[in-house]
């Protein structure tokens, strides 16, 4: 079996299984821990609290104006590469074909030149993000293996993808195989590291936003 067939065949199957198993395990593992009831008298009704949670889900996407001077640039950098990743993942024709055969739905693609621009941009931003992580005193202190490995594996997928489309670094099929394999690796790593935040971000904002709004506190 050649590399591409292995990567998109058994390796992908295993990776997808590990991904689902890990994600569900991790979420169920904490969601079934104790939930303490709130006995205090709420300031706002449940409906109002939930509306607050919904608002927080959206509004936390960008810092409150009081914070932007200090955090705007850092957050923009983070969002930048996330947006780039989404465009490259969701708007590149071969990726759409991939999702199409997995889930049975497809959507229009963007031209490859646009995708190439975005992936180069994303790669550049990822380098900037890494540079910031190793130079910023707070980030350097907070960072652990998870942070660096998650960065590495994300970047690896981008780099091999770029190499495959640009036909550099070796025969196309080898690089394509590595690209898919690195994606498989990312799937396997996903539930065990910080990549899980993709599942957490909106529920976390919504739940905390709801709880704060229930008290009438700022969110």
């Amino acid at each position: 079996m050649d590399l591409v067939s292995f990567a998109r065949g058994p390796a992908l199957e295993v990776a997808l299984a590990v991904f689902c198993l890990g994600v569900v395990w991790r979420i169920v593992g904490f969601a079934l821990l104790r939930i303490r009831r709130n006995f205090n008298e709420p300031r706002n009704s449940l409906v109002k609290a939930i509306i607050g949670g919904v608002i927080a889900t959206g509004s936390r996407s960008w810092p409150h104006s009081e914070f932007t001077v200090r955090t705007g640039a850092g957050e923009a950098l983070g969002y930048g590469y996330h947006i780039g990743l989404f465009i490259v993942i969701l708007a590149f024709a071969p990726h759409i074909a991939f999702f199409g055969s997995l889930f049975g739905v497809t959507w229009p693609a963007l031209p490859n030149s646009v995708i190439t621009i975005f992936s180069v941009l994303t790669f550049t931003l990822l380098l900037a993000v890494l540079f910031r992580r190793v130079t910023h005193r707070v980030l350097r202190m907070l960072s652990n293996f998870d942070d660096y490995f998650s960065w590495f594996i994300t970047t690896l997928v981008i780099v091999t993808g770029l190499m495959a489309t640009a036909h550099i670094g070796g025969p196309y099929q080898t690089i394509l195989g590595l690209h898919i394999l690195s994606f498989d690796a990312l799937l396997v790593w996903f539930p065990f590291g910080k990549l899980m935040h993709a599942f957490y971000i909106f529920p976390s904002r919504a739940i905390n936003g709801t709880l704060l709004s229930r008290k009438g506190a700022a969110s």
Binding site: A31, L32, R36, G74, H197, I201, N208, L211
Partner: peptide
């Protein structure tokens, strides 16, 4: 530790923004 505190700790992505 309960579901809520666990979720809060799970969610941290080490972005360091809270320092600001």
């Amino acid at each position: 530790i309960g579901a809520l505190s666990a979720f809060r700790m799970e969610s941290c992505i080490h972005c360091g923004i809270c320092a600001d």
